[in-house]
Design a protein around this nucleic acid. Structure first.
Lengths: 203, 203
DNA sequence: GCTACTATCGACAAAAATGTCAATAGAAGC
DNA sequence: GCTTCTATTGACATTTTTGTCGATAGTAGC
Protein backbone atom coordinates (compact mmCIF):
# COMPACT_ATOMS: atom_id res chain seq x y z
CA UNK A 1 0.00 0.00 0.00
CA UNK A 2 1.10 3.52 -0.62
CA UNK A 3 2.30 5.61 2.27
CA UNK A 4 -0.07 8.43 1.57
CA UNK A 5 -3.71 7.58 1.55
CA UNK A 6 -5.04 8.69 -1.78
CA UNK A 7 -7.61 11.40 -1.08
CA UNK A 8 -11.13 10.65 -2.19
CA UNK A 9 -11.16 11.74 -5.80
CA UNK A 10 -13.10 14.96 -5.59
CA UNK A 11 -16.04 14.86 -7.87
CA UNK A 12 -15.43 17.19 -10.72
CA UNK A 13 -18.14 19.77 -11.24
CA UNK A 14 -19.56 20.14 -14.70
CA UNK A 15 -21.48 23.32 -15.38
CA UNK A 16 -23.41 24.45 -18.36
CA UNK A 17 -21.40 26.81 -20.54
CA UNK A 18 -23.49 29.73 -19.34
CA UNK A 19 -23.07 28.81 -15.70
CA UNK A 20 -19.38 28.29 -16.19
CA UNK A 21 -18.95 31.73 -17.73
CA UNK A 22 -21.08 33.26 -15.02
CA UNK A 23 -19.00 31.58 -12.32
CA UNK A 24 -15.80 32.87 -13.87
CA UNK A 25 -17.06 36.41 -14.33
CA UNK A 26 -18.42 36.57 -10.80
CA UNK A 27 -15.04 35.52 -9.44
CA UNK A 28 -13.30 38.05 -11.66
CA UNK A 29 -15.64 40.81 -10.52
CA UNK A 30 -14.89 40.05 -6.89
CA UNK A 31 -11.18 40.15 -7.64
CA UNK A 32 -11.54 43.45 -9.44
CA UNK A 33 -13.39 45.21 -6.66
CA UNK A 34 -11.28 43.76 -3.87
CA UNK A 35 -7.81 43.85 -5.32
CA UNK A 36 -7.91 46.00 -8.42
CA UNK A 37 -7.55 45.42 -12.14
CA UNK A 38 -3.99 44.17 -11.85
CA UNK A 39 -5.32 41.17 -9.94
CA UNK A 40 -7.16 39.93 -13.02
CA UNK A 41 -4.51 37.38 -13.93
CA UNK A 42 -5.49 34.17 -15.61
CA UNK A 43 -4.31 32.00 -12.75
CA UNK A 44 -5.84 34.20 -10.08
CA UNK A 45 -9.22 34.32 -11.75
CA UNK A 46 -9.20 30.56 -12.18
CA UNK A 47 -8.24 30.03 -8.54
CA UNK A 48 -10.95 32.43 -7.37
CA UNK A 49 -13.48 30.57 -9.48
CA UNK A 50 -12.28 27.25 -8.14
CA UNK A 51 -11.33 25.79 -11.51
CA UNK A 52 -8.21 25.23 -13.55
CA UNK A 53 -6.95 28.02 -15.74
CA UNK A 54 -7.38 25.84 -18.79
CA UNK A 55 -11.11 25.91 -18.23
CA UNK A 56 -11.10 29.70 -18.22
CA UNK A 57 -9.38 29.67 -21.59
CA UNK A 58 -11.81 27.09 -22.89
CA UNK A 59 -14.73 29.40 -22.20
CA UNK A 60 -13.18 32.76 -23.06
CA UNK A 61 -10.21 32.10 -25.31
CA UNK A 62 -7.89 34.50 -23.52
CA UNK A 63 -7.60 36.44 -20.35
CA UNK A 64 -8.13 39.65 -22.31
CA UNK A 65 -11.48 38.31 -23.42
CA UNK A 66 -12.37 37.62 -19.81
CA UNK A 67 -11.62 41.21 -19.00
CA UNK A 68 -13.69 42.67 -21.81
CA UNK A 69 -16.55 40.33 -20.97
CA UNK A 70 -16.35 41.51 -17.39
CA UNK A 71 -16.38 45.15 -18.47
CA UNK A 72 -19.46 44.63 -20.55
CA UNK A 73 -21.21 42.62 -17.89
CA UNK A 74 -20.59 45.25 -15.24
CA UNK A 75 -21.63 48.06 -17.54
CA UNK A 76 -24.86 46.22 -18.31
CA UNK A 77 -25.51 45.70 -14.60
CA UNK A 78 -24.80 49.34 -13.87
CA UNK A 79 -27.13 50.62 -16.55
CA UNK A 80 -29.85 48.20 -15.52
CA UNK A 81 -29.44 49.23 -11.92
CA UNK A 82 -29.84 52.90 -12.77
CA UNK A 83 -32.71 52.44 -15.19
CA UNK A 84 -34.58 50.22 -12.73
CA UNK A 85 -34.95 53.11 -10.32
CA UNK A 86 -38.53 54.21 -10.65
CA UNK A 87 -39.43 57.38 -8.83
CA UNK A 88 -42.61 56.96 -6.77
CA UNK A 89 -43.64 60.56 -7.18
CA UNK A 90 -44.60 63.03 -9.84
CA UNK A 91 -43.10 66.15 -8.34
CA UNK A 92 -40.16 67.09 -10.60
CA UNK A 93 -37.87 68.15 -7.77
CA UNK A 94 -38.63 65.01 -5.79
CA UNK A 95 -38.05 62.93 -8.89
CA UNK A 96 -34.69 64.57 -9.46
CA UNK A 97 -33.74 63.99 -5.86
CA UNK A 98 -34.79 60.37 -6.13
CA UNK A 99 -32.78 59.98 -9.30
CA UNK A 100 -29.72 61.45 -7.66
CA UNK A 101 -29.96 59.03 -4.77
CA UNK A 102 -30.39 56.13 -7.16
CA UNK A 103 -27.30 57.29 -9.01
CA UNK A 104 -25.28 57.39 -5.82
CA UNK A 105 -26.53 53.96 -4.83
CA UNK A 106 -25.47 52.60 -8.19
CA UNK A 107 -21.95 53.92 -7.93
CA UNK A 108 -21.45 53.13 -4.28
CA UNK A 109 -22.66 49.55 -4.43
CA UNK A 110 -20.54 46.83 -5.99
CA UNK A 111 -17.56 47.94 -7.96
CA UNK A 112 -19.28 50.35 -10.32
CA UNK A 113 -17.03 53.27 -9.47
CA UNK A 114 -14.00 51.04 -9.74
CA UNK A 115 -15.27 49.81 -13.05
CA UNK A 116 -15.46 53.37 -14.30
CA UNK A 117 -11.95 54.11 -13.09
CA UNK A 118 -10.70 50.90 -14.66
CA UNK A 119 -12.21 51.81 -18.02
CA UNK A 120 -10.81 55.31 -17.78
CA UNK A 121 -7.30 54.22 -16.89
CA UNK A 122 -7.17 51.59 -19.59
CA UNK A 123 -8.70 53.82 -22.25
CA UNK A 124 -11.62 51.45 -22.78
CA UNK A 125 -14.19 54.21 -22.59
CA UNK A 126 -15.52 53.34 -26.03
CA UNK A 127 -17.42 50.54 -24.30
CA UNK A 128 -19.69 53.12 -22.74
CA UNK A 129 -21.91 53.67 -25.75
CA UNK A 130 -24.81 51.89 -24.11
CA UNK A 131 -24.45 54.21 -21.16
CA UNK A 132 -24.92 57.13 -23.48
CA UNK A 133 -28.17 55.68 -24.73
CA UNK A 134 -29.37 55.04 -21.22
CA UNK A 135 -28.66 58.61 -20.22
CA UNK A 136 -30.41 59.91 -23.29
CA UNK A 137 -33.42 57.82 -22.41
CA UNK A 138 -33.50 59.31 -18.96
CA UNK A 139 -33.07 62.84 -20.23
CA UNK A 140 -35.63 62.59 -22.99
CA UNK A 141 -38.14 60.23 -21.47
CA UNK A 142 -38.21 61.33 -17.89
CA UNK A 143 -37.05 64.86 -17.60
CA UNK A 144 -37.75 66.72 -20.81
CA UNK A 145 -41.52 66.68 -20.69
CA UNK A 146 -41.67 67.91 -17.17
CA UNK A 147 -41.21 71.44 -18.30
CA UNK A 148 -37.76 71.98 -16.92
CA UNK A 149 -35.18 73.40 -19.25
CA UNK A 150 -33.70 70.32 -20.98
CA UNK A 151 -30.21 71.81 -21.12
CA UNK A 152 -30.30 72.62 -17.44
CA UNK A 153 -31.51 69.12 -16.69
CA UNK A 154 -28.66 67.65 -18.69
CA UNK A 155 -26.16 69.81 -16.89
CA UNK A 156 -27.61 68.69 -13.61
CA UNK A 157 -27.23 65.07 -14.64
CA UNK A 158 -23.66 65.69 -15.63
CA UNK A 159 -22.59 67.03 -12.27
CA UNK A 160 -24.68 64.41 -10.53
CA UNK A 161 -22.85 61.63 -12.32
CA UNK A 162 -19.53 63.31 -11.61
CA UNK A 163 -20.31 63.53 -7.94
CA UNK A 164 -21.71 60.02 -7.74
CA UNK A 165 -18.59 58.57 -9.33
CA UNK A 166 -16.34 60.72 -7.18
CA UNK A 167 -18.12 59.67 -4.01
CA UNK A 168 -18.22 56.02 -5.05
CA UNK A 169 -14.53 55.94 -5.91
CA UNK A 170 -12.88 58.37 -3.53
CA UNK A 171 -15.51 58.93 -0.86
CA UNK A 172 -14.31 56.44 1.76
CA UNK A 173 -10.65 57.35 1.43
CA UNK A 174 -11.35 61.07 1.43
CA UNK A 175 -13.60 60.89 4.46
CA UNK A 176 -10.96 58.97 6.34
CA UNK A 177 -8.30 61.43 5.23
CA UNK A 178 -10.27 64.37 6.57
CA UNK A 179 -11.42 62.65 9.71
CA UNK A 180 -15.05 62.81 8.66
CA UNK A 181 -17.65 60.09 9.12
CA UNK A 182 -17.78 57.62 6.27
CA UNK A 183 -21.16 58.83 5.06
CA UNK A 184 -20.12 62.46 4.91
CA UNK A 185 -19.14 62.52 1.23
CA UNK A 186 -22.44 61.11 0.09
CA UNK A 187 -24.44 63.33 2.39
CA UNK A 188 -22.63 66.51 1.44
CA UNK A 189 -22.75 65.73 -2.26
CA UNK A 190 -26.46 65.03 -2.14
CA UNK A 191 -27.04 68.24 -0.17
CA UNK A 192 -25.22 70.15 -2.83
CA UNK A 193 -27.32 68.59 -5.55
CA UNK A 194 -30.57 69.20 -3.69
CA UNK A 195 -29.77 72.85 -3.49
CA UNK A 196 -29.08 72.91 -7.20
CA UNK A 197 -32.28 71.03 -7.95
CA UNK A 198 -34.30 73.47 -5.90
CA UNK A 199 -32.89 76.36 -7.88
CA UNK A 200 -33.86 74.90 -11.23
CA UNK A 201 -36.28 77.08 -13.17
CA UNK A 202 -39.70 75.58 -12.51
CA UNK A 203 -41.95 74.35 -15.28
CA UNK B 1 35.83 43.82 -44.31
CA UNK B 2 32.46 42.99 -42.90
CA UNK B 3 29.40 43.33 -45.06
CA UNK B 4 27.58 45.53 -42.65
CA UNK B 5 29.22 48.77 -41.77
CA UNK B 6 29.43 48.87 -38.01
CA UNK B 7 27.33 51.81 -36.87
CA UNK B 8 29.19 54.56 -35.11
CA UNK B 9 29.24 53.37 -31.50
CA UNK B 10 26.70 55.65 -29.93
CA UNK B 11 28.20 57.48 -27.05
CA UNK B 12 26.73 56.11 -23.89
CA UNK B 13 25.15 58.67 -21.64
CA UNK B 14 26.20 58.71 -18.03
CA UNK B 15 23.97 60.61 -15.65
CA UNK B 16 24.30 61.37 -12.02
CA UNK B 17 22.29 58.95 -9.88
CA UNK B 18 19.76 61.69 -9.17
CA UNK B 19 19.40 62.60 -12.84
CA UNK B 20 19.10 58.93 -13.77
CA UNK B 21 16.31 58.38 -11.28
CA UNK B 22 14.60 61.55 -12.41
CA UNK B 23 14.82 60.46 -16.04
CA UNK B 24 13.30 57.09 -15.22
CA UNK B 25 10.49 58.51 -13.09
CA UNK B 26 9.61 61.10 -15.71
CA UNK B 27 9.33 58.39 -18.32
CA UNK B 28 7.25 56.26 -15.99
CA UNK B 29 4.95 59.18 -15.24
CA UNK B 30 4.37 59.76 -18.93
CA UNK B 31 3.59 56.09 -19.39
CA UNK B 32 1.17 56.14 -16.48
CA UNK B 33 -0.83 59.10 -17.69
CA UNK B 34 -0.84 58.03 -21.32
CA UNK B 35 -1.35 54.31 -21.09
CA UNK B 36 -2.38 53.52 -17.56
CA UNK B 37 -0.81 51.70 -14.62
CA UNK B 38 -0.61 48.39 -16.43
CA UNK B 39 1.90 49.98 -18.81
CA UNK B 40 4.42 50.35 -16.00
CA UNK B 41 6.38 47.26 -16.99
CA UNK B 42 10.10 47.15 -16.41
CA UNK B 43 10.93 46.88 -20.08
CA UNK B 44 8.46 49.56 -21.13
CA UNK B 45 9.70 52.04 -18.57
CA UNK B 46 13.30 51.41 -19.60
CA UNK B 47 12.44 51.84 -23.26
CA UNK B 48 10.55 55.05 -22.57
CA UNK B 49 13.52 56.34 -20.61
CA UNK B 50 15.88 55.36 -23.41
CA UNK B 51 18.01 53.04 -21.29
CA UNK B 52 18.38 49.33 -20.68
CA UNK B 53 16.16 47.69 -18.13
CA UNK B 54 19.18 46.65 -16.14
CA UNK B 55 19.88 50.29 -15.44
CA UNK B 56 16.41 50.76 -14.05
CA UNK B 57 17.01 47.91 -11.64
CA UNK B 58 20.38 49.32 -10.72
CA UNK B 59 18.75 52.54 -9.55
CA UNK B 60 15.56 51.21 -8.04
CA UNK B 61 16.10 47.56 -7.24
CA UNK B 62 12.77 46.39 -8.61
CA UNK B 63 9.93 47.56 -10.76
CA UNK B 64 7.72 47.70 -7.68
CA UNK B 65 10.11 50.20 -6.16
CA UNK B 66 9.88 52.29 -9.31
CA UNK B 67 6.14 52.36 -8.91
CA UNK B 68 6.16 53.37 -5.27
CA UNK B 69 8.77 56.03 -5.98
CA UNK B 70 6.54 57.33 -8.75
CA UNK B 71 3.55 57.42 -6.45
CA UNK B 72 5.41 59.40 -3.85
CA UNK B 73 6.89 61.76 -6.39
CA UNK B 74 3.52 62.50 -7.95
CA UNK B 75 1.88 62.95 -4.56
CA UNK B 76 4.60 65.41 -3.59
CA UNK B 77 4.13 67.31 -6.84
CA UNK B 78 0.39 67.41 -6.37
CA UNK B 79 0.59 68.70 -2.83
CA UNK B 80 3.19 71.29 -3.79
CA UNK B 81 1.04 72.37 -6.71
CA UNK B 82 -1.96 72.91 -4.50
CA UNK B 83 -0.11 74.59 -1.65
CA UNK B 84 1.65 76.93 -4.05
CA UNK B 85 -1.64 78.52 -5.03
CA UNK B 86 -1.66 81.85 -3.27
CA UNK B 87 -4.90 83.77 -3.45
CA UNK B 88 -4.33 87.41 -4.44
CA UNK B 89 -7.27 88.67 -2.44
CA UNK B 90 -8.52 88.87 1.08
CA UNK B 91 -12.21 88.46 0.45
CA UNK B 92 -13.14 85.05 1.88
CA UNK B 93 -15.53 84.12 -0.92
CA UNK B 94 -13.03 85.15 -3.58
CA UNK B 95 -10.34 83.20 -1.78
CA UNK B 96 -12.51 80.12 -1.70
CA UNK B 97 -13.29 80.50 -5.37
CA UNK B 98 -9.63 80.89 -6.13
CA UNK B 99 -8.82 77.82 -4.10
CA UNK B 100 -11.42 75.80 -5.93
CA UNK B 101 -9.99 76.79 -9.29
CA UNK B 102 -6.49 75.91 -8.12
CA UNK B 103 -7.79 72.55 -6.99
CA UNK B 104 -9.34 71.89 -10.37
CA UNK B 105 -6.16 72.96 -12.11
CA UNK B 106 -4.15 70.56 -9.98
CA UNK B 107 -6.34 67.59 -10.80
CA UNK B 108 -6.82 68.38 -14.44
CA UNK B 109 -3.18 68.96 -15.26
CA UNK B 110 -0.74 66.11 -15.50
CA UNK B 111 -1.91 62.79 -14.28
CA UNK B 112 -2.99 63.81 -10.80
CA UNK B 113 -6.50 62.41 -11.16
CA UNK B 114 -5.11 59.25 -12.66
CA UNK B 115 -2.66 59.02 -9.82
CA UNK B 116 -5.53 59.20 -7.35
CA UNK B 117 -7.43 56.51 -9.20
CA UNK B 118 -4.33 54.38 -9.37
CA UNK B 119 -3.79 54.64 -5.63
CA UNK B 120 -7.42 53.88 -4.97
CA UNK B 121 -7.57 50.84 -7.23
CA UNK B 122 -4.37 49.38 -5.86
CA UNK B 123 -5.23 50.09 -2.24
CA UNK B 124 -2.16 52.27 -1.76
CA UNK B 125 -4.11 55.06 -0.13
CA UNK B 126 -1.95 54.88 2.97
CA UNK B 127 0.59 56.91 1.02
CA UNK B 128 -1.70 59.90 1.27
CA UNK B 129 -0.76 60.89 4.80
CA UNK B 130 1.12 63.91 3.59
CA UNK B 131 -1.99 65.00 1.74
CA UNK B 132 -3.89 64.93 5.00
CA UNK B 133 -1.37 67.26 6.56
CA UNK B 134 -1.51 69.61 3.60
CA UNK B 135 -5.29 69.78 3.79
CA UNK B 136 -5.15 70.42 7.51
CA UNK B 137 -2.73 73.24 6.90
CA UNK B 138 -5.10 74.79 4.42
CA UNK B 139 -8.09 74.39 6.68
CA UNK B 140 -6.42 75.68 9.81
CA UNK B 141 -4.08 78.26 8.38
CA UNK B 142 -6.11 79.79 5.65
CA UNK B 143 -9.77 79.29 6.32
CA UNK B 144 -10.34 79.02 10.02
CA UNK B 145 -9.37 82.51 11.03
CA UNK B 146 -11.51 84.10 8.41
CA UNK B 147 -14.54 83.76 10.55
CA UNK B 148 -16.31 81.16 8.50
CA UNK B 149 -17.57 78.10 10.29
CA UNK B 150 -14.60 75.69 10.24
CA UNK B 151 -16.78 72.61 9.86
CA UNK B 152 -18.63 74.19 6.96
CA UNK B 153 -15.32 75.11 5.37
CA UNK B 154 -14.08 71.56 5.74
CA UNK B 155 -17.24 70.22 4.19
CA UNK B 156 -16.81 72.61 1.34
CA UNK B 157 -13.28 71.42 0.80
CA UNK B 158 -14.44 67.83 0.82
CA UNK B 159 -16.96 68.29 -1.97
CA UNK B 160 -14.53 70.49 -3.84
CA UNK B 161 -11.89 67.79 -3.83
CA UNK B 162 -14.47 65.21 -4.83
CA UNK B 163 -15.59 67.32 -7.75
CA UNK B 164 -12.07 68.22 -8.79
CA UNK B 165 -11.03 64.59 -8.88
CA UNK B 166 -14.21 63.59 -10.64
CA UNK B 167 -13.76 66.26 -13.28
CA UNK B 168 -10.08 65.47 -13.70
CA UNK B 169 -10.64 61.77 -14.08
CA UNK B 170 -14.01 61.43 -15.76
CA UNK B 171 -14.68 64.90 -17.12
CA UNK B 172 -13.48 64.45 -20.70
CA UNK B 173 -15.13 61.07 -21.17
CA UNK B 174 -18.37 62.18 -19.59
CA UNK B 175 -18.56 65.35 -21.64
CA UNK B 176 -18.01 63.36 -24.79
CA UNK B 177 -20.62 60.82 -23.71
CA UNK B 178 -23.24 63.51 -23.21
CA UNK B 179 -22.30 65.51 -26.27
CA UNK B 180 -21.23 68.49 -24.21
CA UNK B 181 -18.20 70.69 -24.82
CA UNK B 182 -15.05 69.47 -23.19
CA UNK B 183 -14.94 72.28 -20.67
CA UNK B 184 -18.51 71.73 -19.53
CA UNK B 185 -17.70 69.49 -16.55
CA UNK B 186 -15.23 71.92 -15.08
CA UNK B 187 -17.48 74.91 -15.67
CA UNK B 188 -20.57 73.28 -14.21
CA UNK B 189 -18.71 71.94 -11.21
CA UNK B 190 -17.19 75.31 -10.47
CA UNK B 191 -20.57 77.00 -10.85
CA UNK B 192 -22.00 74.58 -8.35
CA UNK B 193 -19.22 75.31 -5.89
CA UNK B 194 -19.54 79.06 -6.34
CA UNK B 195 -23.15 78.87 -5.41
CA UNK B 196 -22.28 76.88 -2.33
CA UNK B 197 -19.52 79.31 -1.40
CA UNK B 198 -21.88 82.24 -1.70
CA UNK B 199 -24.31 80.58 0.67
CA UNK B 200 -21.71 80.05 3.37
CA UNK B 201 -22.53 81.84 6.61
CA UNK B 202 -20.51 85.08 6.49
CA UNK B 203 -18.00 85.98 9.16
C1' DG C 1 47.93 60.40 -18.56
C1' DC C 2 46.45 57.11 -14.85
C1' DT C 3 43.33 55.27 -11.33
C1' DA C 4 39.12 54.60 -8.90
C1' DC C 5 34.48 54.61 -9.04
C1' DT C 6 30.20 53.33 -10.88
C1' DA C 7 26.47 54.16 -14.36
C1' DT C 8 25.43 51.54 -18.20
C1' DC C 9 24.85 47.69 -21.03
C1' DG C 10 24.00 42.98 -22.85
C1' DA C 11 23.80 38.30 -22.28
C1' DC C 12 21.93 35.12 -19.41
C1' DA C 13 18.74 33.08 -15.89
C1' DA C 14 14.65 32.77 -13.24
C1' DA C 15 10.03 33.48 -12.51
C1' DA C 16 5.48 34.52 -13.82
C1' DA C 17 1.84 34.61 -16.94
C1' DT C 18 -0.41 32.88 -20.84
C1' DG C 19 -1.67 29.49 -23.98
C1' DT C 20 -1.86 24.34 -26.20
C1' DC C 21 -3.29 19.77 -26.11
C1' DA C 22 -4.47 15.07 -25.23
C1' DA C 23 -6.87 12.50 -21.82
C1' DT C 24 -10.57 12.23 -18.49
C1' DA C 25 -15.10 12.41 -16.65
C1' DG C 26 -19.94 14.18 -16.05
C1' DA C 27 -24.37 14.26 -18.28
C1' DA C 28 -27.76 13.62 -21.66
C1' DG C 29 -29.87 10.81 -25.25
C1' DC C 30 -30.51 6.45 -26.91
C1' DG D 1 -26.01 -0.23 -20.36
C1' DC D 2 -23.84 2.23 -24.30
C1' DT D 3 -22.62 6.18 -27.06
C1' DT D 4 -21.87 10.94 -27.84
C1' DC D 5 -20.73 15.31 -26.53
C1' DT D 6 -17.92 18.46 -24.22
C1' DA D 7 -16.63 20.70 -19.73
C1' DT D 8 -12.72 19.90 -17.15
C1' DT D 9 -8.17 18.85 -16.02
C1' DG D 10 -3.05 18.53 -15.73
C1' DA D 11 1.06 18.29 -18.07
C1' DC D 12 3.60 20.70 -21.29
C1' DA D 13 5.11 24.71 -24.23
C1' DT D 14 5.53 29.50 -25.26
C1' DT D 15 5.77 34.17 -24.23
C1' DT D 16 6.34 37.86 -21.18
C1' DT D 17 8.27 39.96 -17.34
C1' DT D 18 11.53 40.38 -13.96
C1' DG D 19 15.95 39.90 -12.04
C1' DT D 20 21.38 38.62 -11.99
C1' DC D 21 26.00 39.34 -13.29
C1' DG D 22 30.26 40.26 -15.49
C1' DA D 23 32.16 43.47 -18.83
C1' DT D 24 32.34 48.06 -20.61
C1' DA D 25 32.74 52.95 -20.65
C1' DG D 26 32.10 57.78 -18.85
C1' DT D 27 33.81 60.90 -15.33
C1' DA D 28 36.08 62.83 -11.54
C1' DG D 29 40.23 63.19 -8.94
C1' DC D 30 44.88 62.79 -8.98
Amino acid sequence: MSIEASPPPARRARRSPEAARENILAAAEALLTERGPQALKLTDVAAAAGISHGTVLHHFGSIADVQTALMERMIRQLVAHILAADPPTEDPAAKADFGARALFDAFESRGAARLAAWLELTGETRRLTMVREAVQEIVRGRLAHHGADPAAAEDLILVSVLLAMGVGLFGPTLADLLGKPADAPRRLALDLLRRQIASLPPA
